[in-house]
Design a protein around this nucleic acid. Sequence first.
DNA 1: TCTGGGGTCCTAGGACCC
DNA 2: TCTGGGGTCCTAGGACCC
Length: 423
Amino acid sequence: MDAFFVSVEELFDPSLKGKPVVVGGQRDERGVVSAASYAARRFGVHSAMPLRTAAKLCPQAIFVNGHPERYREYLHKVHEVLGHFSPLVEMASVDEAYLDMTGTERLHGRPLRSAHRLHAEMKSATQLNCSIGIGTSRLVAKVSSAKAKPNGVLWILPGEEAKFLAPLAVGDIPGVGKVMEEKLHAIGIEKVGDLARMEERDLEERFGKWGLALAGKSRGEDAGGWFDTAVGENVDAKSMSHEHTFNEDTGDAERLQSTLMRLSEMVGRRLREAGYFARTIQLKLRYKDFSTITRAHSLDEPTQMDNRIFEEARHLFLTNWKEGAAVRLLGVQASNFESGTMGAQLDLLEPSRDERWRKALAAADHVRDKFGEAAIGLARGMKGGFRERVHENPAAPPGRSTARQRSELSGPPRSHGGTEEGG
DNA sequence: TCTGGGGTCCTAGGACCC
DNA sequence: TCTGGGGTCCTAGGACCC
């Protein structure tokens, strides 16, 4: 999808059309740009750029916090359209999908023809623009769709993959970021064509497993990691995490632990929804100077319960935090999933305690479904006052906002973020 | 410039086991 | 006293993607 978040915002507020729009937060907030309109991009604004930088580059830009529920709604429509064209649809990210079109020619015609039909149907069903790349591999499809933007269709003929990629910068290959790009530049490789001319063994010696995958990519082959799976194949999640960056760094132990509690609850809830039991809990701690540590611990028995997750996260925090040091970010991650049968065994061992917790948490999930994320939480999560500002709840009771929040509300209504600095 | 949040994959060292 | 080889699991950090 082309500038997906911005385009959806424009549908709800047509006055934004053609203007420089930045989605991701307000101009004075900590955070980065999630999406920028094409008008904003002309000022040098792009995604992942700090909001404050974007505000300096383009002072007249309109800053929007974003509306996740709207994006979800439109994503659903997008997905429905894609389903008309292939049974094998893989949502690669919030605004990208792969379709395996093998065997659909009788129904939809030649690739270019079906791509144009998809393009037109997407527009009429969602009012949104997309770009389509067609290729014999996911890599080629992805790179060609990037080159087709905005609002275009590009077909790379079978056999022409290497020729298409050769003149492109190595950084255009998905998986080659800043660091890899610099390493390649250092040995005289600028274009994908330079890469394709390298000896495979040489690349493997220099860059290990990645070097080998890189050699394949330079020829247009899917290689390495997730690219090796079939399109549409269901891949189980490997981890679930939540993290929070404070608007201002804090060294307040009570407040930090309250935040840990809230993050633990969010992780626990996701585990229960997905039916996962996690064996490893990880704490992430980022200090004022941006130095970041992670500390993990594996449990004897897997869990999906908020209080167990919090217990571990809190222990890791208390044994690793430089007491009093100003913290910028806290995160809680669950990983190392095991199937639910282990949880059942846990029940046999300790039926009363665990069953009571499970019931309590299920009831809490239900309350949150009905009244919003901030409606209920374990006691520690309510200290420090941060719950006073309701999180992701459009039906929040009025009369609690501070002067600063009221001034923010003079713009479009906030839908998320701001889980701290309560009244 | 001042750096979000949610993920995946890879590397590397050390503990531990046979 | 000077210490193999193979395997798995755990932990920490970092590159990368959107």
